[in-house]
Amino acid sequence: MTKPDIPEMDAMIALAARFEAAVKADPALEGAELGEMLRHVPGKRAICRGTVQGRECIWRVFHSPQDGVAGREWVELQRVHAGMRDDDHTVNAPLYHAPEFGLVAVEFIAGTPLMALVWQSPLEEREALIIPAARWLRRYTESSESWWPAKPEGWLKRAERAAAKQPFSKLHRLERPILAELARLLPRIEGLDWRTAICHGDFHPNNLIVDGARMTGIDNGGSARMPIYKDMARFLMHMGRRGLIPSGSRVLGVDGAMIEAFSETFAMTEAERRLILPFMLGIEALIRVEHADMTRSRVRRAHAMYEALLEDLRKI
């Protein structure tokens, strides 16, 4: 039997006590409940099911209310929701915020996570299911997009630091030549402009919930300004390292049809499509280091993705 993680249990007890204090302090929280914990990021926050003002919600309970993170997320949630609530590309609505207690509640969204939906669908239907994600991301970023001088060197250094922590020698042997290819591309990107925006920050298919034609983004609010290609690379690599290629066409280790969907939806320039996005795909591949307890099948799929990525990077 796994021993309880005492520090984590203590943290959750403290968060529950803080939630109860908030309920007592604010009449608007009468009847509110903090339910099942869905995810815990030690030292940062817990994500829980619950209710607020008679509605099902997701609670984001922050460990350190005084650091202002909850307030910044609340502002960003409101900004994005104002522009993404009137069609089939939406975000969940912000419902409640108590800055002094580090609490944020957002609407609970019923439906199926996009990746789960794709996996359970027939092969011939998968590409059509995944393509609308490009339009969702475009809606999210378009109000804050702007062009800035490209700064790829910092991203490459981040990838180098992450690659040094790779626990699987089979993958580490491929990461070194991938880093070499990214270093080769770097001078061709420096001097260019690239597009930045306030991005999602963790844009992967399980953070999109599908209900019929409606696609709702969740886990928003922790956004920051960065190159728009980072969110695309996160989405593509999340699928690629799991061997999910909905169109059946693998390019740069990931789904080729989805690369085209992002390229067309964002009206990418030739430099963005042929140089900057491939560079960022390589960066994303390396900064998501596999955990030491990863299954052999996951490592095998990641290895196949690395090989395909490296082969195509060498052609650029």
Rank of each mutant, 00 (worst) to 15 (best):
M1G: 14
M1K: 01
T2D: 12
P4G: 03
P7E: 02
P7N: 01
E8D: 13
L15V: 08
A16N: 02
R18E: 09
F19W: 15
E20F: 00
A21K: 14
V23F: 05
V23M: 11
P27K: 12
A28N: 14
L38W: 02
L38P: 06
P42A: 15
G43D: 14
G43H: 12
K44P: 00
A46N: 13
R49M: 14
R55T: 13
C57D: 01
R60M: 11
A70Q: 08
R72K: 15
R72G: 14
E73S: 03
W74R: 04
E76G: 04
Q78L: 13
R79E: 09
R85F: 10
D86Q: 13
D87A: 04
T90L: 07
T90I: 02
V91A: 14
N92M: 05
A93H: 08
L95R: 09
L95Y: 03
A98Y: 03
V104D: 11
I109H: 01
T112L: 06
T112G: 02
A116W: 01
V118D: 11
V118M: 10
Q120P: 06
S121R: 00
R126Y: 12
E127M: 07
I130G: 00
P132L: 04
A133I: 07
A133L: 04
A134E: 04
L137P: 12
T141C: 08
E142P: 07
W147I: 12
W148A: 15
E153H: 11
E153W: 03
G154E: 06
R158G: 07
R161I: 02
A162M: 03
A163H: 01
A163D: 01
A164G: 06
K165R: 15
K170R: 15
K170W: 02
L171D: 08
L171G: 05
L171F: 14
L171E: 13
H172V: 01
H172A: 04
R173C: 04
R173V: 07
L179R: 06
L182D: 01
A183V: 09
R188W: 01
E190K: 15
E190A: 11
D193K: 06
T196P: 05
A197E: 04
D202T: 08
D202A: 15
L208H: 09
I209S: 03
V210E: 05
R214H: 14
G217N: 02
I218W: 05
N220G: 12
A224L: 11
R225Y: 07
A233M: 00
L236V: 08
R241P: 15
R242D: 14
L244T: 09
S247A: 15
S247N: 09
G248D: 10
G248M: 04
S249H: 07
S249N: 05
R250M: 12
L252I: 08
V254I: 11
G256I: 12
E260R: 10
S263I: 00
T265P: 10
T265W: 00
E272K: 14
R273V: 07
R273Q: 03
R274C: 08
L275R: 15
L281E: 03
I283K: 12
E284T: 13
L286V: 03
A292V: 11
M294K: 09
R296P: 13
S297C: 05
R298Y: 10
V299L: 06
R301N: 08
A302C: 10
Y306I: 08
Y306N: 13
E311N: 06
D312C: 11
R314N: 10
R314Y: 05
I316D: 12
